[in-house]
C-alpha cells in the first residue's frame, strides 16, 4: 500500500463516517481540482454513487469554462447539484469588479455570506433537474448540519490547524484556539442544535498528491489547469477578476507533477495567483474564521 493508497483509504473512511452522522449532509464543490478529487473519492466511498447534494456557490464571476464543466459532469455522473448565490449584493453591484467594495468584502459577500445563507436554507437554493436539464428552485430549505469540504492542510497557514471534523457555531464561526480532540479515527459527530460540522477528508493531501492521484485515477479535471499554448495556466481557480494565470507551459497532468515536484513551482506558494489572500494579511484567517472555505 503506497502513500496515495493510504490517503485514499483514510479519506474514504472519513466520508463514510460523515454519511450516517448527519441527517442533512452536503459536499461543497468549487469545480477546482481538490473538490473534484473529493467528488471522485465520494464515488469511491459509495461505490459509484454520491448520496448527498453537491453545493456550488456561484459568484457569477467564475471563469465561464468552470460553469460549463460543472454542468457537464453533473449530467454525466448523475449528480445532485445545488447552487446558491448572494443575489442582493449582485443586484446592488456591491462587488469588487463593479468597483464598489474591496476584494475582501467582495469575497465576504459573494462567497462567505452566500455560503452561510445557502447552507442555512435562508436564501434560495437551485437544484439541477435531470429530467428538464435545467436548474429550478429547491423546495427543501432545511439547514445542512454536515458540510464536506475539500480543504487541505498544506494550502495555507490556518488550514493546517483544522480537524477532520471541525465544528462551527451558530454564527458560522470557527474557534481555532478551542477545538475538540480527535484521535483513533473517532470524530466529532455530536453537535448542539444550531451548530454544524465541517468535514475535511483531504486534510492530509498535498497539492502534489492531488495531481498524482488525478493522474493515477484519470480524473477529468477542468482544462484551465493546462497551458493552452499561451505559456500560462491556472494553478488555483477562483473568480475571474481575482485569479491570475501563472507562467507555466505544463500541458498535461504529468507535466504539472513534474513542475511541482522538481521544477519551477517547487518553491512557490499554490495560491500565489489569488489576490484576496494578499489582501487578508496573515493567512486567510480573517476570511476563514468567518466562514470562508
Amino acid at each position: 500500500m503506497n502513500h496515495l493508497d493510504e490517503l485514499e483509504h483514510r479519506s474514504v473512511h472519513i466520508l463514510r463516517e460523515a454519511y450516517p452522522a448527519f441527517r442533512n449532509l452536503c459536499m461543497l464543490w468549487s469545480i477546482g481540482k481538490d473538490s473534484t478529487v473529493l467528488l471522485w473519492l465520494a464515488r469511491k466511498a459509495f461505490f459509484g454513487h454520491v448520496p448527498f447534494p453537491l453545493i456550488h456557490i456561484d459568484t457569477s464571476f467564475k471563469i465561464p469554462e468552470m460553469i460549463a464543466y460543472r454542468d457537464k459532469l453533473v449530467a454525466a455522473w448523475g449528480l445532485n447539484l445545488i447552487y446558491g448565490q448572494n443575489a442582493e449584493a449582485l443586484k446592488d453591484r456591491r462587488t469588487f469588479p463593479h468597483g464598489q467594495v474591496d476584494r475582501l468584502t467582495c469575497c465576504q459577500l459573494l462567497k462567505s455570506e452566500a455560503l452561510k445563507h445557502t447552507l442555512s436554507g435562508e436564501w434560495p437554493r437551485y437544484r439541477f433537474n435531470h429530467a428538464t436539464n435545467d436548474y429550478e428552485p429547491d423546495r427543501n430549505r432545511e439547514p445542512f448540519t454536515g458540510v464536506i469540504v475539500g480543504a487541505r492542510a498544506d494550502e495555507e497557514g490556518s488550514r493546517s490547524k483544522e480537524r477532520y471534523f471541525s465544528p462551527r457555531n451558530n454564527e458560522n464561526l470557527w474557534d481555532v484556539a478551542d477545538q475538540p480532540p480527535e484521535f483513533w479515527q473517532q470524530y466529532k459527530t455530536e453537535f448542539a442544535p444550531g451548530t454544524h460540522v465541517r468535514i475535511h477528508p483531504l486534510l492530509d493531501w498535498t497539492e502534489l498528491n492531488i495531481w498524482e492521484y488525478i493522474e493515477r485515477e484519470r480524473i477529468p479535471v477542468i482544462g484551465l489547469y493546462f497551458d493552452p499554448g499561451s505559456g500560462t495556466r491556472y494553478r488555483s481557480l477562483g473568480c475571474g477578476p481575482c485569479t491570475a494565470a501563472i507562467p507555466s507551459e505544463a500541458r498535461s497532468v504529468g507535466e504539472i507533477i513534474h513542475e511541482l515536484s522538481t521544477g519551477r513551482l517547487a518553491h512557490v506558494a499554490e495560491r500565489s495567483g489569488r489576490a484576496q489572500d494578499a489582501a487578508d494579511h496573515g493567512g486567510l484567517e480573517t476570511l476563514r474564521r468567518s466562514g470562508y472555505m
Binding site: 492542510a153 498544506d154 495555507e156 493546517s160 506558494a269 495560491r271 500565489s272 489572500d277 494578499a278
Partner: peptide, 11 residues
Amino acid sequence: IASHECLSNHR
C-alpha cells in the same frame, strides 16, 4: 511572495 505564504506547510 504572497504575504500569507506559510512556511510550516511548504513541502
